[in-house]
């Protein structure tokens, strides 16, 4: 099944015309494209500039967003915490990415997350609502997920989950850009790009925790970002994923970006003094051929 057929099925399914649940099997093809993984990182105090630098070293936003594309930018807005507390993606990073996607000619740019705390409080307290609101462009759609738009998707290659409810816009996007914040998480040790995809899941997400690493890799087979931009401008070292204590926050002023979601997570892990092999979701996603985790095989560029 190709992408077009898949979208047709999603359309039919959500229109109630088809009872069969759509499949998604284009990920192998995508994985093949990433012959050598390239990763870019930049450090500095001007976060908008950091975003621009990593983007240009990866070939510019035009490589990921083509004119007329429907773009989804998926930050982490999971918690009712302010930017300094490092629980959500930094608003400046999100804002700059949205602007660059618009500059690249996107038809629309959707920004959303399914938060854990009360949604409106998260959107406001994260600073992302204000930051994205400053962009006066009708193509930007910043909204709370709509419960009607989660579609059940069969995870064909799933080893630990066979079916998940996934937000329709994330599936239909021409370009899905993942913008997590890198932080501590007790169960998965760290939460970065692959974990951030949980924000497009519907239903009860608690069950993901029983075998989290593999289930996240299974999810990564269907939610495939064209670009992962990891916000490590400040990282949370303990009491994650919510934090709340500024003593647990370390300012790194760093942004990591790659088209390879596994490579992005693998490299970012080292910023915490950990090895990529210590993160189960990285190991599982690599084993499924979703990307490269061997730092020696990743071409790291300082932008």
């Amino acid at each position: 099944m190709d992408r077009r057929e898949f979208l047709r099925q999603v359309g039919l399914w959500s229109a109630g015309l088809s009872l069969s649940v759509p499949h998604f099997r284009i990920c192998e093809a995508l994985a093949m494209e990433n012959k050598s993984s390239m990763l870019s990182y930049a450090t500095g105090k001007d976060y908008a500039d950091l975003v621009d630098r990593v983007l240009s070293s990866l070939g510019g936003m035009g490589k990921f967003v083509r004119p007329g594309d429907k773009v989804v930018i998926k930050p982490n807005i999971g918690w009712d915490r302010n930017p300094a507390q490092a629980a959500n993606t930094h608003p400046q990073v999100v804002k700059t990415l949205v602007e660059r996607a618009l500059d690249a000619g996107a038809r629309e740019v959707k920004v959303f997350d399914r938060s854990c705390n009360e949604q409106r409080r998260c959107y406001v307290n994260s600073g992302i609502q204000d930051a994205v609101g400053e962009i006066k462009d009708k193509r930007v759609k910043f909204f709370h997920p709509d419960d009607r738009k989660y579609v059940p998707v069969d995870i064909e290659r799933g080893k630990a989950v066979r079916r998940l409810e996934i937000y329709r816009d994330a599936l239909e996007a021409d370009s899905y850009i993942n913008v997590p914040v890198a932080k501590h998480h007790s169960l998965s040790r760290l939460t970065m790009g692959i974990k951030n995809s949980m924000g497009v899941l519907g239903g009860s997400r608690g069950a993901m925790h029983h075998d989290l690493g593999q289930k996240l890799a299974d999810l990564a087979t269907v939610v495939q970002p064209k670009l992962t931009v990891i916000d490590a401008t400040r990282i949370l070292l303990a009491n994650g994923p919510q934090g709340g204590d500024l003593n647990d926050v370390k300012v790194l002023d760093t942004i990591v970006a790659s088209a390879d979601p596994v490579a992005a997570d693998a490299y970012t892990t080292t910023l915490f003094g950990l090895k990529p092999e210590e993160i189960q979701s990285t190991v599982a996603a690599h084993a499924m051929g979703l990307g490269e985790m061997d730092l020696a095989k990743i071409r790291v560029v300082k932008a």
Partner: peptide
């Protein structure tokens, strides 16, 4: 079975739920 969803959500800066 691994879980600790409660610990993840515990909101106090120094988490009241530990493991």
């Amino acid at each position: 079975i691994p879980c600790i969803v409660c610990e993840e959500h515990c909101p106090t800066p120094d988490k009241a739920i530990k493991f």
